[in-house]
Each structure stands twice: as structure tokens, then as C-alpha cells.
Design a protein around this nucleic acid. Structure first.
Lengths: 362, 362
DNA sequence: CTGAAAGCGCTTACAG
DNA sequence: CTGAAAGCGCTTACAG
């Protein structure tokens, strides 16, 4: 019992394949009676056009691809991605498209791209200097770049990482911290001096803010450790930081998930937070509000980022012009995890706070 | 400048299409020199086999479909789904498949199925008595049913919902509660007496536990309200419950996300938890531990469920026999959100606790 | 309003 | 080891 095809229906209904095709795709081309007769026969025989055969001729799959920097399992652990996907999903629903999650295939993003049958890609958080972009161009598959440095001729959405990073580091320093550790997101590259895109922008923000207080990553009071952007990464990073002789009074993490991993590990080790150690993040995940102490961090409009990325992709699917670049704003969110360092408190109990232009929430 | 196809490469390399195809899919069929020559030419011209054309002949898309009961945006909001997807994603990574998220198309799951080019579906939380199953069978597309009543001849994975529900309700009642509200998950059906599958099993568990204390859904002390399984659903349900004249001392929600919505709304309205109102959930989402008071709930192995579902689907893709049915265990997790009712406490301060066989965690 | 035919870009027996 | 040819199941000018 083989699958029923358009030929079977054509025969059974006593019409041509063309007519059957029209009955499904453009009934107005047919007499009412013909169309409904065909649909009846199809219904009865359980026929429905084969999606891949259809894609073959129409050159469209009806699927949007989300090109991921990591395995699906890892991605789904990270609230940043799920929030991003909410935005993408919203658009998918509106335009009636399906979302294909495309992780590296056998460890290679480059492999994954040509194997995925999608109309276009949202490229998320990839270091795009390698062959991916070239490959997608050659294959003529539309894409939009998110959280990476895009060339002028490709649509992109980014966030004002520099300002966000600058502002949060400034906030930390203004509290009086002079021993700080930065947890960087591990990139594929050799070291943090090789950062590009988002990571480079955040790092530059931190660096400038430090410089304003005569500090730098070369300074012995400033520590930099790298870790994969995950809860476990935060844990590892904290442990590395805390095992050093000279412990910092504040940790600034490049992502909330890192900050949260570090914070919870610190708590589990009886470090009293935030008195003994201040921690700041980046992203403002939903959990940042719920954790105790509530996390002081930088908000970026993650869901909106997803929404805009999907809209940009749809736009480039529909007409092949008009390349837009979005840079979305960030905002420091002050909660409870960053306070004046303990030492400082005792010595200078009356020192007035610097006046920061930041929004205060609970 | 059209897309480069296998023909272009064949010509450029001076070989047949067959040879080009082999160079990519089975180089052992070719002389080494031929194969590498072809690959070089392909590389140079930026050729890579078209995935949909390939699917056309191989009858395989390399994508697993996840058939969703709601929009992607809604699904990604619900930690239950993301946890499930972690399990699925793990398997996808191992077998080198892609994951296609397939929400209802224009509101219809039935529409969505034939439009998705996937090798098979994981059908999640659908009321499967409608045409979906029939449709997938006709189209000969493999599937596995999760969280629904499956027929004997289709692979399925479920959880022991009945026991979990029975145990948590028994726990609540054993604390002395006699005024309880149940928040049900809104199904498409008319009322909760129409529940099937997971929902029916949970309801039956609650019902039996109530019966053991001479209570039932007809009893005026037992209230049942339905809401969509989301934070907002929990909020709505709480408001409805709390606006009644006779307020319950405990709420038992059919999912954690409902419980959390209700709990946070109650807190926002200055209801003092858990003294004034006990709340229990179902699922044991990660956030259940973090919320205050920490949520007493039923744990189900959600990620494992996803993993098993994906493995079952892979199995049925690889050989078309062997239908397995999994029923995974549940477990009551006692935290802080269910306590003896206030009233009761004052009147009978010394009453001993019932001895429950349950695991206690923080 | 309807149908015969070409074509989408591959893979895969089959023959040599 | 290599190639000519059929076929996968549709859609879409084109002709009538």
C-alpha cells in the first residue's frame, strides 16, 4: 500500500494532475463542481500534497531556520535563547511558518547549513568571520545576523552592548569596588583580546569604565576569567576566582546565566551576599528578579530582538532589497546584588553615593 | 546568476551527475582522483547538494517534527516544554537531526501536519481523538504520542499522572484542608468531565483522594476552575477562586505554571502564604524550588520524557516494528507551600501529622 | 475551464 | 570505476 499521490487522485477523480493541483492551490482556476469533486476524492483517499515535492517546484519550504551556536539541549537550558525564541515564534505564528532549530551538525555549523531545508536563517551569536556567511551567500539563502558584527549589506540586529557594559561597570566601581573580577564568555578564539561583535563591545565597555577609574585588565586588582556561558560556567568561574589569594569584592559577569551560576555557587559556599561579594550580570533574564539577592544587571530587549530578527528575515524573503541594521538599547537594572564593599562600609560609613542615571526596580 | 546545481559541477568537472552525487554521498564508488577532483570543483563553485531535491529522492528530510498544541511563543514561555525539548534536543544532537517546531497552522493542528516536511512527529499534549492520528497514518508518517492516550499500536510515553495526582491531593488533605480548589488545565472540550489522557488521569487521582476523605467535586467545599496552562491562567484562576464567598484553604493546580501564577498573584494581593492559603502544583519545574514559598508539587521526569520520545521516534524511523509504551514514575516533592490550614492550627495545635511516604527536599 | 508536458535538482538501479 | 536514464511528486507556463 504505497502513499497516495497526485496521480492517484487525478485518475480517481477523472481529471488531470493540473486540476488536482489547482484544487489545492488555486481553486478559482476550476469550476466549482470540479474543485469540490476533487477535494472530496482527495479527502476520501487521504491525499494531501507532499510538502517536499511542493518545495521542490515552488522553491520555498515554509520553514525559518534558527542557526544555533550550540546543541539544542544546551540552548534550551539557557533562558536567553528561549526568550529570543519567543520573539521569533511570535512572528512565525503570524506568518504561518514553521521554525527549524539548526544546531551544529557533527560539531560543525558549516556542515549544518547546507543540510537544512529552510527558506532562510536567523544566525544567532555566531562568530561570523568564518565560512558561514560566504556559504549562505553562495547558496543564495537569505539570512539575518544577530549578536555579531554584520557587514553593511546584511540585515542585522544588535544591542548597544558597549553602553550597557560601560554603565554596569561604572555602577560597580561607583560603589567603591576596586578589586573586581570579570567573567567573560568563552569564545572559540584564543583569548579575550580576540573577541569580536557582542563580546568585544561588552569588553570595551568594561575596559573604558575601568579606565575612568585608572584600572585596566592588566592591573593586578582586575581579574579576567573565561567560561562557557552557562550555569556551570558561572560555577567554574566563581571557583577559579575564589581560589585566588586576593579575592575580588565584586564580580561582573558577561551574562546573567554566568552571574547566576556564580551567585548560587557562592551562596552554597556560605559567602554572604551581597556584603562579602557583589555580583552583576548582563541580559536581565526573568530569573534575575527572582534570585536572592536579586541580580543587578543590564537589560536587553531579548524577545524584541527575536521578533525583529524574524521580521527582518521575512522582509528579505519577500523582497530582496532593503537591508536594515537594528541596534536596540540596553538599560542598567539596579537590584540587590551590588552593594558597597564591606571594607569600605566600615571605613567610610558616611560616604555619599554617586548619582547614577539608572532605573531602579525592585 | 542562478544557483549552481549538480549539472554545472558535472560539466565543469567533465564527469556525469552520478559521479558528482557519489563524490558527496559515497566516494568509495569513485576513483580517489575523480572524487577529489569533483570536490575541488564543487568547493570552488560553491556547490552543495540541494537539501530538498535530495529529500525528494531519498524520502527523508533529516528533520524531526515536534507537533505543538500552541503557538511557539506560548510554548517557549512554559518551562515544561523547554525542559521537554532539552530531552528531545539531546537525541537530535546524537543522531544529527534537526528539530522542527510545528505549531498549529492558522489555528489548526490538522492543517499543520501535512505542511511540515519532517521524517516523523513527536506529538505533544494533544487531544488525539481528532483527525491528527488518522492523518499521520494515511500519510505514513511515523509518530510518537506524548501525554495523551495512545492506542496500542502507537508508541507513546506517559507519566503516572494518576498516582502523582492522588498522592499530592492526599498530602494536602492530610494536612487538614477541607476547603480546596482545583485549577484544571483548560482543554478544548466542554468541561472537565470530558478530559482524556493526562488530564483525565490527574483528575481521577484528585477525585479518588478526595473520595477517601468523603469529598468530591460535587461537594460545595470543593471548587473546580479551569484555565489555560500558563502564568496568566493561574492568575485568572486565583482571582476567580478568591472572589468567591467561601474561600478555600488550599489550591491544587494541575500544573506548576498554573500554581506559580496563582501563588504570585496571591502574594501580590497580600494573601499571606502559606498560612492563609496552601498551594500545590504538578510538574516540578526548576522554578518551583526558587519561588517563595517553595512549591510543594509532583515531580515528573520531563526531560527524560523528551529523550525517550525522541528515541522512540528514531526507532520507528529506523525499523517499522516494535511499538513501546512508556509510563514514567512521578513523585511528590514536599517543600513549603502546603501547610496545615490556619484555622486548624489554632484549634488543634497538637494534632500529629499523617505519615506520608514522600520525599522531603528543601 | 481543463490538460499535456516540461521542469525543479537530486539519487539510484542498471548497464557497461 | 563511470555514465545514461528513469523517477521522486509536485507546479506552472502554455495551448486549447
Amino acid at each position: 500500500m504505497r502513499k497516495v499521490t497526485i496521480n492517484d487522485i487525478a485518475k480517481a477523480a477523472g481529471v488531470s494532475k493540473t486540476a488536482v493541483s489547482f484544487a489545492f492551490n488555486d481553486p478559482s482556476q476550476l469550476a466549482q463542481a470540479t474543485a469540490s469533486h476533487i477535494r472530496e476524492v482527495a479527502e476520501q483517499m487521504g491525499y494531501t500534497p507532499d510538502p517536499v515535492a511542493r518545495s521542490m517546484t515552488t522553491k520555498r519550504t515554509n520553514a525559518l531556520g534558527l542557526l544555533l551556536p550550540q546543541d539544542i539541549a544546551k540552548v534550551m537550558e539557557n533562558p536567553f535563547y528561549t526568550e529570543f525564541m519567543r520573539g521569533v515564534g511570535k512572528v512565525c505564528g503570524q506568518v504561518g511558518r514553521t521554525l527549524m532549530l539548526v544546531p551544529p551538525l557533527w560539531g560543525s555549523t558549516l556542515e549544518a547549513i547546507p543540510h537544512a531545508a529552510v527558506d532562510g536563517f536567523i544566525v544567532l551569536g555566531l562568530e561570523i568571520d568564518r565560512g558561514e556567511v560566504q556559504l549562505m551567500r553562495q547558496r543564495r539563502i537569505p539570512f539575518v545576523i544577530v549578536d555579531s558584527e554584520a557587514l553593511d549589506d546584511m540585515p542585522s540586529v544588535n544591542v548597544d552592548d558597549y553602553s550597557g557594559a560601560h554603565a554596569i561597570m561604572t555602577h560597580v566601581l561607583s560603589k567603591g569596588h576596586r578589586h573586581v573580577a570579570v567573567i567573560g564568555i568563552e569564545s572559540g578564539k584564543t583569548g579575550f583580546d580576540q573577541y569580536t561583535g557582542t563580546l568585544a563591545a561588552r569588553l570595551a565597555g568594561y575596559r573604558e569604565a575601568l579606565a575612568a577609574h585608572h584600572l585596566s585588565f592588566d592591573h593586578r586588582n582586575v581579574q579576567f576569567v573565561e567560561a562557557p556561558s552557562s550555569w556551570e560556567g558561572g560555577q567554574m568561574a566563581f571557583e577559579r576566582i575564589w581560589s585566588r589569594e586576593c579575592r575580588p569584592t565584586a564580580i561582573v559577569a558577561m551574562s546573567d546565566i554566568l552571574a547566576i551560576g556564580a551567585l548560587e555557587t557562592a551562596k552554597a559556599q556560605q559567602v554572604s551576599l551581597p556584603e562579602e561579594l557583589s555580583i552583576a550580570g548582563f541580559d536581565d533574564l526573568p530569573e534575575a528578579r527572582h534570585i536572592r539577592p536579586a541580580l543587578t544587571t543590564v537589560r536587553q530587549p531579548t524577545e524584541e530582538k527575536g521578533r525583529i530578527a524574524a521580521e527582518l528575515l521575512m522582509a528579505s524573503l519577500e523582497n530582496h532589497q532593503a537591508v536594515a541594521h537594528y541596534v536596540l538599547p540596553t538599560e542598567v537594572i539596579i537590584r540587590k546584588s551590588v552593594v558597597r564593599p564591606y571594607q569600605d562600609r566600615i571605613e567610610q560609613p558616611k560616604q555619599t553615593l554617586h548619582n547614577q542615571k539608572v532605573k531602579i526596580t525592585r
